[in-house]
């Protein structure tokens, strides 16, 4: 399977300014790991030290949040689109 993955503006400097990429994988997790492998500098921004997706990184498959699907195990069909959408969080202390 392969999916089109849309890269948000802040991560494009790590993909040679490409807005979208075609990547292989049978689940969302696989596609994301392929992405992180091909563009190594991107990895830290998507995954924490334990290799888990960071909680301010939101992943949508065809506009559906994977938290409401099977999370990283969500199966990918050909021609699916995956979007990485930021949450913006922070605080004083």
């Amino acid at each position: 399977m392969s999916a089109t993955i849309f890269i948000p503006t802040p991560l494009r400097p790590f993909t040679g300014d490409q807005e979208s990429l075609e990547l292989e994988g049978s689940t969302v997790g696989e596609v994301l790991r392929n992405l992180a492998e091909q563009y190594g500098d991107l990895k830290k921004h998507l995954f924490d030290e334990e290799g888990k997706l960071r909680n301010f990184v939101n992943i949508y498959v065809n506009d559906e949040d994977i938290r409401y699907l099977d999370r990283e195990e969500t199966a990918i069909q050909d021609k699916d689109t995956i979007s990485i959408v930021p949450s913006i969080a922070g605080g004083a202390l």
């Binding site: 503006t9 991560l11 400097p13 913006i88 922070g90």
Partner: peptide, 30 residues
Amino acid sequence: AIVGFFHSHPDVPAQPSTYDQDHAWPWYSY
């Protein structure tokens, strides 16, 4: 495009906190 974000620090200096850093994205202006 979205170029960045603003937020306030009530009664705390305008320096990013560890929490800010842990949750930040590259490239954007904060």
